[in-house]
């Protein structure tokens, strides 16, 4: 149950009430903006936007877990590696001596700052995809993408569908092993469970293939395009995505506002840039405030 709350589930929020393609576009829009903008202040506003969206979309637990188990180690790794391998930057903060093939390693302030900005970008992109994962109905996404690449889409979905089934099989096998009075050694026990799991996976795949055939997957007819009226939430999030992307594009083109890490850290902040940051955060919050019809 706890696990279910971490993945997609219908949540009584404005983002949960949109169609899957709109929810996915919103998350992907934030990710694209994060990959495009240069200024750290703008990145900070996108980080705020994605976190606020996660909280308001009731996906904060999944975001927190992602941050804790994957992103924080990734952030640290990114910063440390960049600090060690970067030869740019003039402000040396630590001299680490000769490191074999790496030669003389000097850690510079600029390399650390660049690593932090890069890591911030990764964090936003990852959190944006957590938002998509928790808010966009994968079945609807499949149906939407099936018109373009039907077999690839279904194969991908079948893969994701089989994963929880195989995980459940593995849990049952492990439980069954715990019920044995004579238990093999831990390593041999694991090997036996893995082997039985693989054997079971082949059977499961055959069953799934049979079901797909019986239910017309091989039928050459494509489902006709479905026409659904756009809800107020669809429109609001499409508009918010457009505003966030537009703010990102404009922020890169603003005269006077710039950021560069090398050779010395240089940051310039202008009033229009601050305004764009505020617009970005506001655009991410406003669609959530309308709670009419959020429960299906």
């Amino acid at each position: 149950m706890a696990g279910a709350a971490l993945g997609y589930a219908r949540r009584a929020t404005a983002l949960g009430a949109t169609r899957a393609t709109v929810a996915a576009a919103y998350g992907v829009g934030i990710a694209v903006a994060a990959l495009y903008v240069q200024h750290p202040l703008m990145l900070a506003s996108l980080l705020t936007a994605v976190i606020v969206s996660g909280v308001l979309a009731n996906c904060w637990r999944a975001m927190l877990l992602t941050l804790r188990w994957t992103l924080l180690p990734l952030v640290l790794t990114t910063v440390v590696i960049n600090a060690i391998v970067s030869r740019e930057g003039l402000t040396v903060v630590a001299r680490l001596g000769e490191w074999g093939p790496l030669g003389q390693v000097n850690v510079t302030l600029e390399a650390i700052v660049y690593g932090l900005v890069y890591a911030l970008r990764l964090v936003i992109v990852a959190l944006a995809f957590v938002l998509v994962y928790c808010s966009a109905d994968p079945d609807e996404l499949l149906l939407a993408s099936r018109r373009l690449a039907p077999r690839s889409a279904l194969a991908a979905l079948l893969g994701t569908r089989l994963m929880p089934v195989l995980a459940a099989d593995a849990r049952r096998l492990a439980d069954a092993q715990r019920c044995r009075s004579r238990q093999p050694s831990k390593s041999r026990g694991r090997a036996l469970v893995v082997r039985a799991g693989v054997r079971g996976a082949i059977d499961r795949s055959l069953d799934a293939a049979a079901v797909l055939e019986m239910r017309g997957f091989g039928d050459p007819r494509r489902p006709p395009r479905a026409h659904h009226p756009r809800s107020r939430h669809d429109i609001a999030f499409i508009f918010a995505t457009a505003v966030i992307l537009a703010a990102a594009i404009v922020s890169n083109a603003l005269p006077g506002s710039h950021f560069s890490a090398y050779p010395l850290v240089s940051v310039a902040v202008t009033a229009p840039l601050v305004l764009l940051c505020l617009v970005t955060v506001t655009a991410s919050v406003l669609p959530f405030l309308d709670r009419r019809g959020v429960v299906r």
Binding site: D137, R161, A168, R204, D207, R222, P223, P224
Partner: peptide, 28 residues
């Protein structure tokens, strides 16, 4: 078939029931 767990292909109940109908070319 006997084991319902291996007969599910979609993630949600609505999509699961709709799957076979859509594959036969039915409209929305």
């Amino acid at each position: 078939l006997q084991d319902p767990e291996t007969q599910a292909v979609m993630g949600g109940v609505r999509a699961e029931i709709a799957f076979g109908v859509e594959n036969r070319g039915a409209g929305g």
